[in-house]
Design a protein around this nucleic acid. Sequence first.
DNA 1: CCCTACCTTTGACTACAGTCAAAGAAATAT
DNA 2: ATATTTCTTTGACTGTAGTCAAAGGTAGGG
Lengths: 300, 300
Amino acid sequence: MEPVSTEHVTTLRRFNRYFTRRIGALDDHYLGQDRPLGEARLLYEIGDGASLRELRSRLGLDAGYLSRMAKALEAQGLVRITVHPQDTRLRLAELTPAGRVEVKEQNRRANRLAEGLLSGLTPAQRGQLTESLGTAQRLLRLAAITVELVDGAAPDARACLDVYAADIDARFPEGYDRAALVQPHEVSGDTGAFLVAYEEGRPVGCAALRRLEPGVGEIRHVWVHPAARRLGLARRLLAELERQAAERGYGVVRLDTHATLTEAQAMYRACGYTGIPRYNDDVYGGYWFEKSLPKPPLIP
Amino acid sequence: MEPVSTEHVTTLRRFNRYFTRRIGALDDHYLGQDRPLGEARLLYEIGDGASLRELRSRLGLDAGYLSRMAKALEAQGLVRITVHPQDTRLRLAELTPAGRVEVKEQNRRANRLAEGLLSGLTPAQRGQLTESLGTAQRLLRLAAITVELVDGAAPDARACLDVYAADIDARFPEGYDRAALVQPHEVSGDTGAFLVAYEEGRPVGCAALRRLEPGVGEIRHVWVHPAARRLGLARRLLAELERQAAERGYGVVRLDTHATLTEAQAMYRACGYTGIPRYNDDVYGGYWFEKSLPKPPLIP
DNA sequence: CCCTACCTTTGACTACAGTCAAAGAAATAT
DNA sequence: ATATTTCTTTGACTGTAGTCAAAGGTAGGG
């Protein structure tokens, strides 16, 4: 991997210092107002209802601490806590009308704060700021996502394929038959690979490689969770999978895409793939692509 | 002022949430490590030495709280506290060699964290992120700066002119004579104005308006502190001063600039000023500009 | 049916962050 | 010379955040 230039590190750190001290701290202070910050955050996070378990993982809180805060909010009449109908170990928290009012008030305060800040800028500058922040957030999210090689039979791998199958089943006019998915053993070991992308511990994308014929690998199931799209994650998965393919001795990789997935086709072309004639009898294939890989560096 | 669009507010708030929770919180956690966060911040802020008074205002801490923390750091051998030689009410804090080591270690950790984040991006993406963050920070700083109309005799006004005079005295080949500065009464009241820009309570720029002849105002001493340059603050001061001029019934404003200040000349042209012949006998003038102002809106 | 894993609650703490008021010492203004 | 202001220190607090361990109830696998 390329070394990180000090200029980039400095800018990120300077921004971080400036932003957390000036904007973030202000925001926290206003959000809480007459309520402890922890409670205010919890209230906000409950939103349209959530289980304590979920809240705990989202906010990264200790179970006991959370339990007590939830109880305090319940005592204040802001939250109603019920037992999960299916799994009675779980507790569900939801806002009461009073809680909803409180959250609305939080939102109003935060909006006013943001408006106050933005009002110091001209409309053109506001647009520029919005664009910069959007770009920065996209890139920061992408940077925080890790791509890992997992076994084709790993639960996360299967979970990704489940969502993937449901996703394209809804998108293909003819639906999608799960029988077309790769088998775990095809995408594991010396000839195959399965990559899962994680954002904050949750799988948000995948990509699979299997052997097609000697020297030729096939890339399949490149998929990104809807909430993680437009970050450039698919390209990253693809690049990483190509590295894996080269390491496994493949000189060429092929793939097919459904005729309806025009964005995917554009991406493959942009990543150096060229259209080729049909190479398989996949019923979902509409376009076929191929890319030659560089020889892997010899690791002594 | 134009209303702030919800899109801009939403983007700013979303970014704020994401950044403070994900990046900022992480940073704080790593910075502190085995030391309370307050102490870690104080240590960092002391840097090459500072008075307790200064630290208090920079960090926004309670006097008692700060005094105790400083003492704790001194007891740990990280900080040396001495009495100010001129004003014995003041205490000066500076790092001991051990303190310096500790701060270096903090820096190393923070750098590693930033590098870890950036290493997930391609060099091109890193460049894009750096640029976005730079732009965003510029704009956020600008947005947080307030411009206020003050009396020409106000301490902040005179303080600005002092720094201004010293600044250009160093820049003009022939130096600068303070006698050329405006008098307080010229830039106050119905015919004059004095604007001071504040960033976090400190004056970081100024601009003055005085009467030149009936219907014609003169803009003078447009100045921005070196630490606040390249944010677009001069333009903002200028625009606000033009509003003040229009309000005071001036249909035209004029100004002159020294021949060496080429950036200033470019800015005036970009702001709608056009070159005119010499209109005064200012020894520092090298270029003369003029701009017609719109009629002020009638306030009933 | 039993065992294990999971989720929550409760009790008992700790440490950090921060506030307030009183008082002392030195500088500055009048 | 006196009054006022400024800066710091000290004592006495408070509230929030967060940790750890024990215990009790429930779900799911074998």
